[in-house]
């Protein structure tokens, strides 16, 4: 499957820490979704801006998702710095070129809208049986009703991904311990769709397919050290009772570093509150 990798965007701040990966292109978001990486949409949806249920781009990827995509080669990172834009636009000729280009694009778009609106207007008049006349105030209204769109994808930022090499390490260093990535990888290899699970008291929750259509079945805990860490009885009760109440199963995960094969290192145990007797 030799497809163009998805572009994920990361900002690296001055102290070398990185932000979470964001995706702006709808095409890329769709491709990620087909691969079972859903992320979290977190921008306001402009047409219904007063709610938090339906959100729009950017899509925010968790560190585990980003690392998984990068390691599998499904994504390429675009690392920029907060100052990148002003640095790029220091170059005045480039700035004016971009400015001109943008103006041209807007004008083209406006022209398209004008044509469309005039057509619609003419159609409406014909329907009502009114004769068409050219009036200045109509033109004025039309001009002021043109829609100026803010684009999602950047035309300024270049794909300068010189820092992309150690991005995986930086993401790991900033956002979680190694075990979480192993658990994530293992869940993905079982074909599960994974999303953040703090609301259910776990590290992840796992879906059997696209969360748009399927309920999740599992609340997966943060990994323990398989050989060393004790399991708190209270954790088992808390996790299993809460999960059962929300129709899920509590999955305890552990990393066994003595296993040679990395795929074999992650162990899972499912715990259900039986409520028996």
């Amino acid at each position: 499957m030799a497809v163009e990798p998805v572009r994920i965007n990361v900002t690296m701040s001055e102290d070398g820490t990185v932000t979470n990966a964001l995706v702006f292109s709808l095409k890329d978001i769709r491709r990620l979704r087909e691969q079972g990486v859903c992320g979290v949409l977190s921008g306001s949806l402009p047409t219904i801006a007063q709610q938090n249920v339906f959100l729009s781009v950017p899509l925010r990827l968790s560190a585990e998702e980003a690392v998984w995509l990068l390691e599998k080669g499904y994504a390429r990172a675009n690392v920029s710095r907060p100052t990148a834009i002003s640095e790029t636009l220091q170059d005045e000729s480039l700035a004016s070129e971009l400015s001109e280009k943008a103006k041209l694009r807007v004008e083209e778009e406006f022209e398209r809208q004008r044509v469309y609106k005039r057509e619609q207007h003419a159609l409406k008049l014909r329907k009502l049986g009114i004769e068409e006349k050219h009036r200045d105030e109509d033109e004025h209204l039309l001009e002021s009703s043109l829609f100026y769109e803010v684009m999602n994808d950047s035309t300024i930022l270049r794909d300068g991904s010189g820092d992309a090499e150690d991005l995986v390490d930086r993401l790991k260093a900033k956002y979680s311990q190694d075990g979480n990535f192993k658990v994530f990888r293992s869940l993905r290899s079982h074909g599960l769709v994974v999303s953040p699970g703090a609301r259910f008291g776990g590290k992840f929750i796992a879906y059997p397919g696209d969360p748009l259509r399927y309920h999740s079945h599992m609340v997966v805990s943060s990994p323990l050290d398989y050989r060393k860490d004790p399991i708190e009885f209270r954790d088992i009760i808390n996790g299993s009772r809460l999960s059962t109440t929300v129709k899920k199963i509590w999955v305890l995960s552990g990393i066994d570093t003595q296993e040679r094969q990395e795929e074999e290192q992650v162990k899972f145990f499912s715990i259900e509150w039986a409520g028996f007797g």
Partner: peptide
């Protein structure tokens, strides 16, 4: 010179 910014 003004350059429009995208969300990205």
């Amino acid at each position: 010179v003004e350059v429009p910014l995208s969300m990205q």
